[in-house]
């Protein structure tokens, strides 16, 4: 009994280590390719369409419904927090008008990660 629990803990911390390890390099230096992909998704009307509501540097005719997406690195040092805001904004604000991109399968996790790589250039 105790043993199983201990194994589980080890397995969990190992898993944490691995995901941590695989995420770290991405944060440090997102590839130009991923940034470009993320930008395309964010600007595309059929995908992220973030421009419908947010000012994003260089984006044409942005909406004014959400706050401008600027200085993202300093405002969102915690990548996980940014992911959560995009994955399901209703979690932090039940009355939000921002679509829950992850929960409603508008974007895949990989697409959200690419969008975040792009956001960190803003």
């Amino acid at each position: 009994m105790r043993n199983t629990a201990r194994h589980a803990t080890i397995a969990l911390s190992l898993a944490a280590l691995f995901t941590g390890a695989s995420l770290m390099p991405q944060v440090a230096s997102a590839s130009a390719e991923s940034v470009a992909k993320g930008k395309a998704i964010a600007w595309n009307r059929k995908q992220g369409n973030c421009l419908a509501c947010h000012v994003m540097a260089g984006g044409e005719s942005p909406g004014t419904i959400g706050p401008p997406l600027v200085a993202m690195k300093s405002r969102f040092p915690d990548r996980k927090k940014l992911f959560n805001q995009i994955y399901d904004a209703t979690k932090s604000n039940p009355e939000t008008r921002m679509p829950p991109f992850g929960t409603h399968k508008i974007l895949s996790n990989a697409q959200i990660e690419a969008v975040i790589d792009y956001l960190y250039t803003l």
Binding site: L51, A52, G63, R97, P99, H104, K105, I106
Partner: peptide, 21 residues
Amino acid sequence: GQLNFNCGSCHVQSSGQHIRT
């Protein structure tokens, strides 16, 4: 819907604002 809006998301909460153009 997929975007999880209600009518008020736009016509109450966002009225007067720009959604793209």
